[in-house]
Design a protein around this nucleic acid. Structure first.
Length: 482
RNA sequence: GGCCCCGUCGUCCAGCGGCCUAGGACGCCGGCCUUUCAAGCCGGUAACGCGGGUUCGAAUCCCGUCGGGGCUACCA
């Protein structure tokens, strides 16, 4: 039996990192087993579904490098892989279940149900549907149906009964049917519920393994019951631990960055995101935190997935992003830096300026955790009138030795033969000796004068990139401002 | 409330009866390096929720308890 797995996001919002993680685990499982990874779009909720969100799903998966073998965008033997195109099929299955006596019409109105639910709760009884319409005869149900009375279709849950299944991550789980009410399969407007549509698709698409969030664990017996009534074969389930926010609460919009897009736009590398998400509920090996996607595929095992919910830790992700940025080929890093710097500047870089970025690139590369930090570390190069960081200025420029250090630096740098870091360093070190200043006192003023801040890439290289003219101009400007 | 799931450092994971005086990673703290900031290196901090069993021996098995979470819709 060849493995067929799927992810089925609803395009009702930006792709959530929890869904992205589920996609990742399904993809890893498929790639590890040589199976088929399928992307289905669960857009039965037409009112809330938007094309923009479907595109976000495709873009997000593509960004992470999770390619799918069948489904939306790539096709396959089962149609469009979009639930909105299969409404007839869900109605057909509902009809079959009705005919077989596995489902029935229910004419209870929402307000009646609501009332009974409240009543039941007040009396301490289970709040689920009491099943009264199940007792209606076929004749009466048919008559009321034909008269146009609004009705939903419910599954006739076999009672007494028990549904048991072997979950790959949870082991054996059992549910007594007494705790499952006769849930709705088809709404009164004829649309299928999630339970029906999703299950029908899983059966029709020959899905062998369903790996999804633990929030669906208690819905699983419903899906198994529908599958059984359809005569389909029940897939193997694997319920993945949920993801939580830093406050230990469910990862929600309140935490800000719940969408994969936020990370895509936030300067994260897909490789880092991929690696980090692997760690949420799984581990490559006890002592190894950083690994390639090939290594992950090679070792991935659903049965080794943790049962514990995990907190998504942006700090660790950032650390890992830094690891991946430093590992980037310098040319690759610079290619990514150009657009960001130009964006910050609001204009295109000239050829000479691009060369400056190339020269400074490797020095910046080892200092950032996020790509978005690159512009702020580079744009000082291109500022006509340098703006100084206030704290930096106060900290080093108001020191009594600063004026003489700046004067000496101006003299010596004017005289440097070849404008290269090594010679610049030699001159400035000689200056430190002459004035009997330590590096901090003698060099920091130069840094602030030329970069505007006490924090910058290494000084001598920076001055080389800046050029003699700009360096001297900035030193004089700062000296004049003292 | 009912049903279900989970419970190892602040966080993520390792551990699947003796290798555990509990290991790795992030974070945090200290040191080294050093012109700043990073990076790197070295060191440190910190956990088996609690109570009973079972066993020669338990983080590992069982029961209870407490705590957290999910579901309980004509949402998914």
């Amino acid at each position: 039996m060849t493995v067929r797995v799927r992810i089925a996001p609803s395009p009702t919002g930006l792709l959530h990192v929890g869904n992205a993680r589920a996609a990742l685990f399904n993809w890893l499982f498929a790639r590890h087993t040589g199976g088929t990874f399928i992307l289905r779009i669960d857009d039965t909720d037409l009112a809330r579904s938007e094309n923009e969100y479907e595109e976000d799903v495709l873009t997000g998966l593509g960004w992470l490098g999770l390619d799918w073998d069948e489904g939306v965008g790539v096709g396959g033997p089962y149609g469009t892989y979009r639930q909105s195109d299969r409404l007839d099929r869900y109605a057909e299955v509902a009809g079959l279940l009705l005919a077989a006596g596995d489902a029935y019409y229910c004419f209870c109105t929402p307000s009646e149900l609501d009332e009974r639910r409240k009543e039941a709760q007040a009396q301490g009884r289970p709040p689920g549907y009491d099943g009264r319409c199940r007792l209606l005869g076929d004749a009466e149900a048919g008559r009321r149906q034909e008269q146009g009375e609004a009705a939903v279709i419910r599954l006739a849950v076999p009672r007494p009964g028990v549904t048991t299944f072997d979950d790959i991550v949870r082991d054996e789980v059992r549910f007594d049917h007494d705790a499952i009410d006769d849930f709705v399969l088809v709404r009164s407007d004829g649309s299928p519920t999630y339970h029906l549509a999703s299950t029908v698709d899983d059966v029709d698409y020959q899905i062998t393994h369903v790996a999804r969030g633990e929030d669906l664990l208690s819905s699983t017996p419903k899906h198994i019951l529908i599958t059984g009534a359809m005569g389909g074969s029940v897939p193997t389930y694997a319920h993945l631990p949920l993801l939580f926010g830093p406050d230990g609460k469910k990862l929600s919009k309140r935490h800000g960055d719940v969408s994969l897009k936020a990370y895509r736009d936030g300067g994260f590398l897909p490789e880092a995101m991929f690696n980090y998400m692997c760690l949420l509920g799984w581990s490559y090996e006890a002592e190894t935190t950083v690994f390639t996607r090939e290594q992950a595929i090679e070792r991935f095992d659903l049965s080794a997935v943790s049962k514990n919910a995990a907190i998504f830790d942006p700090e660790k992700l950032e650390w890992m992003n830094g690891v991946y940025i430093r590992a980037l080929d310098p040319a690759d890093f610079i290619d990514r830096a150009f657009p960001l710097v130009e964006d910050e500047l609001g204009r295109e870089l000239s050829g000479a300026e691009r060369e400056q970025v190339v020269a400074l690139g490797p020095l910046v590369q080892e200092r950032v955790k996020l790509l978005t930090e690159v512009p702020e570390m580079m744009t000082f190069l291109f500022e006509g009138a340098l703006s100084y960081d206030e704290t930096s200025w106060r900290k080093v420029m108001e020191t009594e030795t600063t004026p003489s250090a700046l004067d000496a630096a101006i003299d010596r740098l004017t005289a440097v033969g070849e404008w290269v870091a090594a010679d610049i360093e030699a001159e400035l070190r000689a200056m430190l000796d002459e004035l009997e200043l330590n590096a901090r006192k003698g060099l920091q003023p130069i840094r602030v004068a030329t970069t505007g801040s006490t924090v910058s890439p290494p000084l001598f290289e920076t001055l080389e990139v800046l050029g003699r003219e700009v360096t001297l101009h900035r030193l004089r400007a700062a000296r004049a401002k003292l």
